[in-house]
């Protein structure tokens, strides 16, 4: 009974804790934006219309009406690496690598990922070596003081498509394509209250790949009448920082050939490359969860034993 207070204290503080995750409220509460709808991530459907800039719905005129992005929440997909027993779908990662290599890598670097780590995708040492040898990298200087090109080796990182961010921006109308090494951890759509509290217990940590998948499959929709699309940008309601982005729709059906008979659709490509990018961002994810299971079980048993010891030590001592 005396523990009740501490429990309440704990509960109170605990509920403040996850607020850190909050960054931007796409599910804006009623006072500012009565018409923005889709709260549940499982229901990102079309009824979450773009906020009405005229703002007449609630009867009160919204003077400084801030539109929150993304306009639509991405769907929560089933990922093999989600949850306590998460594991990589190696075939999926291999397909994702293929999509990255044949599509994304034309513009997007992946500077932090070394090709030697591709062994985790089920490739042999020889295959990794052959994969690396398809790239050339600059090395040097040699004895004459000249930089030279050589075939990449596994210890090299993925070569970047542009020599520097300025060149990347110049080649893409001023918008440098972001590096993809950490994109699956560097983008997350806010989950909103109370979902983010449930996320602690469900171990939801896949907002990154969900976002990437949502973005890659979110093109081609009809924008609401009041949404202004800047020239040279493409409407995508799943984009996290605006109604439209500079990247044209990158994927189309049958663009990348799959050898394992997996269907060659945009949705499938997006799933595969999102999974691959999750691996690229967190290569030790599965190892982490496997270690975690042992640690959690150990601590549970240890806590149980300590509790019994504690009961015994306090036996007969009223407190």
């Amino acid at each position: 009974m005396k523990t009740l207070l501490s429990a309440v204290l704990a509960a109170g503080l605990l509920s403040t804790m996850p607020l850190a995750n909050a960054q931007q409220d796409a599910v804006t509460p009623a006072p500012t934006q009565p018409e923005a709808g889709a709260a549940a991530p499982a229901a990102p459907a079309g009824e979450a219309v773009a906020p009405d800039a005229a703002g007449g719905h609630g009867g009160e005129a919204e003077e400084h009406h801030t539109v929150h992005y993304p306009l639509k929440h991405p769907a929560s997909l089933d990922w093999s690496f989600a949850g306590m027993f998460g594991h990589w779908d190696v075939a999926q990662l291999q397909r994702g690598l293929k999509v990255y290599k044949e599509v994304c890598s034309a513009c997007h670097s992946m500077n932090l990922v070394a090709m030697r780590s591709l062994g985790a995708l089920g490739y042999s040492e020889e295959q990794v070596k052959a994969f690396a040898a398809e790239y050339t990298v600059q090395d040097g200087p040699n004895g004459d003081g000249e930089m030279f090109e050589r075939k990449a080796i596994p210890s090299d990182h993925f070569p970047a498509p542009y020599p520097n961010p300025e060149a990347a921006a110049a080649a893409n109308n001023g918008a440098a394509p972001p590096d993809l090494s950490l994109i699956a951890k560097g983008r997350a759509v806010e989950r909103g209250f109370p979902t983010f509290i449930f996320d602690i217990f469900t171990q939801y940590a896949e907002s990154g790949p969900d976002y990437v998948h949502g973005l890659l499959t979110g093109y081609g929709q009809e924008p609401a009448a009041d949404v202004v699309i800047q020239p040279g940008t493409y409407y995508n309601p799943y984009f996290i920082s605006g109604p439209a982005l500079a990247m044209p729709p990158p994927l189309s059906a049958d663009q990348v050939t799959y050898d394992d008979g997996t269907q060659q659709t945009v949705d499938q490509y997006a799933r595969d490359v999102s999974a691959f990018l999750m691996w690229a961002a967190e290569p030790h994810l599965v190892e982490r969860k496997q270690t975690g299971l042992i640690v959690i079980l150990f601590l549970a048993v240890f806590a149980g034993m300590l509790y019994i010891v504690k009961r015994r030590v306090w036996d007969g001592i009223a407190h």
């Binding site: 240890f302 034993m305 019994i308 010891v309 007969g316 001592i317 009223a318």
Partner: peptide
């Protein structure tokens, strides 16, 4: 209240918990 314990007792539980 210490007297109610048996201070010399080293039963299995304590040893097991210590080992864990």
């Amino acid at each position: 209240a210490n007297e109610t314990l048996e201070p010399t007792r080293r039963d299995f539980l304590y040893i097991a918990t210590g080992a864990v």
